[in-house]
Design a protein around this nucleic acid. Structure first.
Length: 853
RNA sequence: GGGCGCGUAGCUCAGUGGGAGAGCGCUCGCCUCACACGCGAGAGGUCGCUGGUUCGAACCCAGCCGCGCCCACCA
């Protein structure tokens, strides 16, 4: 070690993450450690495709958590020597990105429509080039060991090829088709959206009851609606086929108030006779249920609300041009005038809203592209049933399967400009449709000009291909052979259907294998007050701020430690614990590195304490490794912390300090060995501080990021050493507690003698007792240690202490005696449990007798 | 309307059949030559409620009370 570095190590008593993290990250990049060559097979290699963040996005706590988990496993496997790829990339995020750029244009006083499609898309690309890499830089701050040399984007050239290939193949198979169908129309983004992008919220509306007169009769059928404006598009009235009240009316007609249209009265199972009067107005053009009823009965489909959310000409002169809400009021007013409004009452029900724009969904019939899912779903169900894709925690397996078994066609077209434009061309004169991977020149039939489909694909259509499209599919690339299928996926449960399910389906269909072997569904980190973290609520906690304040290692450790299968609140204390651990690592390492004697290759345990430490170390390595492998990050973090802090620092380092200061070779070797292993074990969770300390370690030959991960060494487990040192530690604790109780001054050394076997040397030293003293009656006994009278002890407290302990013991004896006196317990409990209870009783009785002398 | 989950120390959370745990906070004592972002010692819990199963229940079963999430086309 150079004098300069030695001096720095000596002087720096507090670990400062800021400067260290930037420097080390640059070193890792320079080393090229995160970029693998596409060699070997996927079975030997290790790969993960990052869930691509939106280009519009900034790193939020979910990314930070998910990134910490992925990096822990990725780094562990890289250290194990596996050829490891963690694929980096971003998602073009159709609606979100288009919205951001549209907002920007609005500030400039222009708009999307003013620019025109081509110029608009160009502006989005410019925006992407300028701002789209922000989140990538933020992943670097976290220390994520992604392959930054090869960044993918769901709209890059190769990716477009993959999307077109998939679309064409699905079309050729007959899965993709175009249809006039009811979709969730989002008036906010002016596009259809999928069922999964709709959120239902409870809304208080008014339920109106309206009389529909029966043609040629005095009777009326009273129907109920929360959306009176939709009556303008009614084309039938339906009753339940078993409803005797209305049975005679089926086949007759009603007259639609305000409009005068004749509405057939039909019978349909869907109608609930218990609701209202049992008569349902049927609006196939603006309600999904009614749409289905309409298709069953061949009803006319009238649309009175347009894509802009306003009434069109079909609504009639009185209402055309009004917004749907205005039209509703106007309809109610008109009905009041005519006397057709029978009742109105407050009504709370759930209403669909667009998750994207927040607008109330307008169910509309429109011409859209759909993908049939049944055939794709079948094998994706099987692989999960057979655990070829394992879902953890296991309750999500059923959620996945339930959803997949009920899967419905997917509306894949979106009326946006930013995205994969659907690779379909129309020839208007001869009405031909071409689906092609590359733009066709002219119509094959008439030679006429072709017009490309205006719509783009749902963003999730392209993200569904992520694990293989990023590896170069549809080309047969070395990357695909080396890294597909990927090893695992960690994800939030909210995109289990939106994304995970679809990747499994496309992976099997197009890449010939499942996209990953394991899916780990992680917890959601909530705000400190238990609310959802959200930008709009202002409850978000910025991971970058946490990194600035405490360091990336602290945040990573904190997130892993607070993670769970349950949702948890963000815990500042856990992040602080991480920061404290980094500082403790630094300082314990200073103690070791600045005091060790000659460099030794292997540990040479001398005393039982050394064997104890090495045994505990190996137990910890085995356990932490197993926890990481089963995605139990919280316990992995907690166990590593507990071993290091308590066993290594609080006990072992204190025990061996005299030997260390004397420059003993054996203890130096043991300490350097333990330090190397614990640094490597912790590196996947806290890469920066461990790498920094490693740079001072005499055994260092390269970066810790590519240092071998410790394999648990069972040969160093030593039950005898653990038991012997464990007892000595326990005795030390009891002696310390005793002296605290009698208020012995902290610095004083108390006289005592030992009956029986002399305890290990460190017991007296750490508890501040001088054993081997003669004379006088003991004032107290703590195990084999008889404490002698000293001037500095409060005699009254001693007596009190003795009596308190006796009281405890009497209670324990009573409890054990009671239990053993219970014949049923002795008969039916397992023998070892009974034996254990007998041993305890004997121990308590012995101690009680000792204290009663 | 279905499904999943939660209720354990002041706070945030572990703990799935044999004597209640961690971190933070709190109390007391220590600037002990790695670290005061530290060291040592403590206090603090009818494990939501009620029944049941068991020799034995925080843990298994049933019901109830609170809270959360997901799915669902009831006007």
């Amino acid at each position: 070690m150079s004098d300069e570095r030695l001096q720095k190590l000596e002087e720096t008593t507090r670990y400062e993450p800021g400067e260290v993290e930037r420097r080390l990250f640059a070193e890792w990049i320079e080393g090229g450690y995160f970029h693998p060559e596409p060699e070997g097979t996927a079975a030997e290699n290790y790969s993960v495709a990052i869930p691509p963040p939106n280009v519009t996005g900034a790193l939020h706590m979910g990314h930070a958590l998910n990134g910490s988990m992925q990096d822990a496993l990725v780094r562990m496997n890289r250290m194990r020597g596996r050829n490891t790829l963690w694929t980096l990339g971003t998602d073009h995020a159709g609606i979100a990105t288009q919205a951001v750029v549209e907002k920007m244009l609005a500030r400039e006083g222009t708009s999307r429509t003013e620019l025109g499609r081509e110029a608009f898309v160009e502006r989005v690309w410019e925006w992407k080039e300028e701002y789209g890499s922000r989140i990538v830089e933020q992943y670097k701050r976290l220390g994520a060991s992604l392959d930054y040399e090869n960044e993918r984007f769901t709209l890059d050239e190769g990716y477009v090829k993959a999307v077109h290939r998939v679309f064409k193949q699905l079309y050729d198979k007959g899965y993709i088709y175009r249809d006039n169908y009811m979709v969730n129309w989002d008036p906010g983004s002016h596009s259809a959206i999928s069922d999964l992008e709709v959120v239902n919220r409870e809304v208080e509306d008014t339920l109106y009851s309206i009389d529909y007169p029966v043609e040629g009769s005095d009777r009326v059928l009273t129907v109920a609606t929360v959306r009176p404006e939709t009556m303008l598009a009614d084309t039938a009235v339906a009753v339940n086929p078993d409803d005797e009240r209305h049975a005679d009316l089926v086949g007759q007609h009603c007259i639609l108030p305000l409009v005068g249209r004749r509405l057939p009265i039909i019978a349909d199972e869907h109608v609930d006779p218990e609701f209202g009067t049992g008569a349902l107005k049927v609006t196939p053009g603006h309600d999904l249920n009614d749409f289905e009823i309409g298709r069953r009965h061949g009803l006319e489909e009238i649309g009175v609300i347009g894509p802009d959310g306003r009434m069109n000409e079909a609504a009639g002169e009185r209402f055309a041009g009004l917004s749907a809400a205005e039209a509703g009021e106007a309809v109610v007013a008109a009905l009041r005038d005519e006397g057709g409004l029978r009742a109105e009452e407050p009504y709370t029900h759930s209403v669909p809203f667009s998750e994207r724009s927040g607008a109330r969904i307008e169910p509309l019939i429109s011409l859209q592209w759909f993908c049939r899912m049944d055939e794709l779903a079948a094998p994706a169900i099987e692989v999960v049933e057979r655990d070829e894709v394992r879902i953890t925690p296991p309750q999500w397996k059923r959620v996945y399967l339930d959803w997949m078994r009920e899967i419905r066609p997917w509306c894949v077209s979106r009326q946006l400009w930013w995205g994969h434009r659907i690779p379909v061309w129309y020839c208007d004169p001869c009405e031909e449709t071409y689906v092609a991977e590359q733009t066709p020149e002219r119509c094959g039939a008439c030679g006429g000009e072709l017009r490309q489909e205006e719509d783009v694909l749902d963003t999730w259509f392209s993200s569904a291909l992520w694990p293989f499209a990023t590896l170069g599919w549809p080309e047969d690339t070395a990357e695909l052979r080396a890294f597909y299928p990927t090893s695992f996926l960690t994800t939030a449960r909210e995109i289990l259907f939106l994304w995970v399910a679809r990747m499994i389906m496309t992976g099997i269909e197009f890449a010939g294998d499942v996209p990953f072997r394991d899916v780990y569904v992680h917890s959601v980190i909530q705000a400190r007050d238990g609310r959802r973290m959200s930008k709009s609520l202002g409850t978000g906690i910025d991971p970058l701020e946490e990194i600035d304040k405490h360091g990336a290692d602290a945040l990573r450790f904190g997130l892993l430690a607070m993670s769970s299968t349950q949702d948890v609140r963000f815990s500042d204390a856990k992040v602080q614990q991480g920061a404290d651990l980094a500082n403790k690592l630094w300082n314990a390492s200073r103690l070791i590195l600045l005091n060790v004697a000659a460099v030794e290759a292997a540990p040479r345990p001398r005393g039982v304490e050394d064997r104890w430490l090495l045994s505990r170390l190996e137990a910890t390595i085995a356990s932490v490794t197993a926890k990481l492998e089963e995605y139990d990050f919280a316990h992995a973090a907690a166990e590593a912390y507990a071993f290091f802090w308590s066993e290594l620092c609080d006990w072992y380092l204190e025990i061996v300090k005299p030997r260390l200061y004397e420059g003993e070779a054996e203890v130096s070797a043991t300490l350097l060995y333990a330090l190397e292993r614990i640094l490597a074990l912790l590196h996947p969770m806290m890469p920066f501080v461990t790498e920094e300390i490693w740079s001072y370690h005499p055994a260092r030959r390269g970066h810790l990021a590519v240092h071998p991960f410790p394999e648990p060494d069972g040969s160093r487990r030593d039950a005898e050493a653990e038991a012997e040192v464990g007892e000595a530690i326990e005795l030390t604790r009891r002696l310390r507690a005793w002296r605290d109780l009698v208020e012995a001054p902290a610095a004083s050394v108390l006289p005592a003698r030992v009956e029986g076997i002399e305890p290990r040397e460190f017991v007296g030293r750490l508890a501040r007792f001088e054993f081997g003293q003669d004379g006088g009656d003991p004032v107290a006994a703590v195990g084999p240690v008889k404490i002698l009278a000293g001037a500095e002890i409060d005699a009254g407290a001693v007596a009190g202490r003795l009596e308190a302990r006796r009281e405890e013991l009497r209670a324990e004896v009573k409890r054990a005696e009671g239990k053993l006196g219970n014949e049923k317990f002795v008969d039916r409990a397992p023998p070892e449990v009974v034996a254990e209870e007998r041993q305890k009783l004997e121990r308590y009785r012995a101690e009680l007798e000792e204290l009663s002398e």
